[in-house]
């Protein structure tokens, strides 16, 4: 697979949220606003980048039987380091995201990429994969956070969109709203994917017809 296909695959076709439905805990927990979603996504992206990079560097060095505890240690170290850096230089956002930062350790998407991809591929490919998967995850968090913030508070990234007269739909800030909004987003993603598949099929069919004409 070339790098571009690798990127599209990690960002869209195998998106952690849209396709694999992994990492639901931070997704549903922190996405009460687009900004929270963005920074949670960035923190996860940085951890993923670090763990994919190191795991692919040590692939073949770590004996197979102890690879999982080794990967978990690597991931936990990166999470703790990112957490300390955020605590130091982004203190307010660190307080908002709170417990969800240390919980990045148990985001199965990260161990999943270490085990399924970085441990079997080159450093460069692993970095591309981490960036693609991380951006895909961040995109999903911003999307869900944005929808919930917009419907729940009439704002986007803290800026008023619908004006002061907008009646806040509290449900979208509360946990049930996260599930409902996610359901509609997944439906939308499936609709887009079906349209893409139909268009690809149509193109393939017309290509076949052209070939057939030429042969004829």
């Amino acid at each position: 697979m070339n790098r571009q296909a690798l990127f599209v695959d990690g960002f869209w076709h195998n998106n952690t949220i849209f396709a694999q439905l992994l990492g639901m805990c931070p997704l549903l927990g922190v996405t009460t606003s687009a900004e929270n979603g963005f920074w949670m996504g960035v923190a996860t992206l940085l951890v993923l980048l670090g763990s994919n990079l190191v795991v692919s560097l040590v692939r073949g060095v770590i004996p197979k039987n102890v690879r999982i505890p080794a990967y978990i240690t690597i991931i936990a170290a990166f999470v703790t380091i990112i957490g300390m850096l955020m605590d130091a230089w982004m203190h307010q956002m660190y307080l908002v995201l709170g417990l969800f930062i240390p919980l990045i350790v148990v985001n199965c998407a990260i161990l999943g990429r270490a085990e399924a991809f970085a441990s079997k591929n080159s450093v460069a490919d692993s970095v591309v994969d981490a960036v693609a998967v991380g951006l895909g995850f961040t995109f999903a968090l911003i999307l869900l956070g944005g929808v919930r913030e917009l419907l729940g508070q009439g704002e986007l990234f803290g800026f008023s969109v619908f004006g002061d007269s907008y009646p806040d739909v509290l449900m979208f800030i509360l946990p049930p709203g996260a599930f409902i909004a996610l359901g509609f987003i997944l439906a939308g993603v499936n609709w887009i994917n079906r349209r893409l598949a139909a268009r690809a099929a149509a193109r393939a069919a017309s290509g076949d017809a052209a070939v057939a004409v030429e042969v004829g």
Binding site: N65, T73, A76
Partner: peptide
């Protein structure tokens, strides 16, 4: 196996301490 885990843990500990 022991050596690999020891090294991973030791390097992680040093990095965490430095951070």
């Amino acid at each position: 196996m022991v050596l690999a885990l020891f090294l991973v843990a030791a390097i992680a500990a040093v990095l965490l301490g430095m951070t």
